[in-house]
Design a protein around this nucleic acid. Structure first.
Lengths: 184, 184
DNA sequence: TAAAATAATGTCACAAACTGACATTGGGAT
DNA sequence: ATCCCAATGTCAGTTTGTGACATTATTTTA
């Protein structure tokens, strides 16, 4: 196992056991059998060890969008569907996602980091949509889609009732309800 | 002048002159004529000195919403109007807002902090809307409204053409265009 | 295979951000 | 004038993060 992975495993373990703020980079490095210095070579800061820098979600979502331009004309619906399309990412590893989420919610620094990741996600979706739609419209749709995704995620966390895709759909319907009010 | 204000002034000056990362808390404190320790008593961290902790915007926006429930039935439109209602906050001090924005955009830490502030804003709007509307619908409307606000802010930064309220309206119209596609 | 280049890790020294504990001061209230 | 309280200072220490250079694996190539 590469030291990067070892550090991620060690960090996850310690964060769970004693909380994010109570574990030092020193401890993580020791548990992983490396030096503090190599921690900071793999991750730009302490919080970085929890965040996937490669933007896997963004790539999957963008791929879905480019693959489905033809069957779906409405930018927002397309973007929302793209989030539903990655529901396996969540449903298949509920345990891990929940644990991770709990750590993040326990600390403001981590929440901020998560928020920044959401901006990257918005960009991915915006770029994917921009191929076919007007760029400003794409950005707005992307922003709305990510908000819908986020609300769906929160609901998915709270209850075991529905799968991720269903929660996304539920929030999308809430959006339809919201917009229908325009024409009352 | 209270030391808190002195620190804010000193920080703003130094951040402008030599950038956020290149100025130390030490320097800010010295310029303000106090100790590093009192800086950290006033602000929870270095970035805090740039952020208004009292959520003035949230309060103003929430106030507008509660004051205008009767004249406006549509939650999103109401929320968006509430942002237009504080346009003086921006138009009246373009200089300062631009300078501040430039500092924030120069550093990831500050961007994250700004993002967290937006969450607080979302909560304010959600709570205000919840008095009259369903709570989930309120949250969705609040999230969308804040995204619209943010896009309007970006456009307002980029061009001197329109006032803040006009930019908000412009993005809202973009939203209408987006939703109309539902019924194509 | 041996030598040489390259990548990963270690060592060390240090700056900057932050905190806890306790001392000092500087105005208001009495 | 004195007492009180809040704000500030002092100081010592922890943790995060970085630069510079040494050492050790790993891979390339002669």
């Amino acid at each position: 196992m590469k030291s990067k992975e070892k550090l991620q495993v060690a960090a996850a373990k310690l964060f769970m056991e004693k909380g994010y703020e109570n574990t030092t980079v020193q401890e993580i490095a020791s548990l992983a059998g490396v030096t503090e210095r190599t921690f900071f070579r793999q991750f730009k800061d302490k919080s970085d060890v929890l965040f996937d820098t490669s933007n896997t979600m963004g790539q999957r979502v963008a791929a879905f969008i480019t693959d489905n331009f033809d069957v779906e004309q409405k930018p927002l619906k397309l973007a929302v569907d793209s989030f539903a399309s990655i529901s396996d990412y969540f449903d298949d590893s509920r345990e891990r996602v929940l644990a991770r989420n709990q750590i993040i919610q326990s600390n403001p620094d981590l929440q901020e980091r998560e928020l920044l990741k959401r901006q990257v996600l918005i960009e991915s979706v915006t770029n994917a949509l921009s191929v076919k739609f007007d760029s400003e419209l794409s950005e707005l749709a992307a922003r709305f889609a990510v908000e819908i995704f986020h609300m769906a995620f929160k609901k998915w966390i709270e209850s075991t009732e529905k799968g991720f895709a269903e929660q996304v759909l539920a929030v999308y319907q809430l959006y339809e309800k919201l917009t229908l009010l325009i024409f009352e």
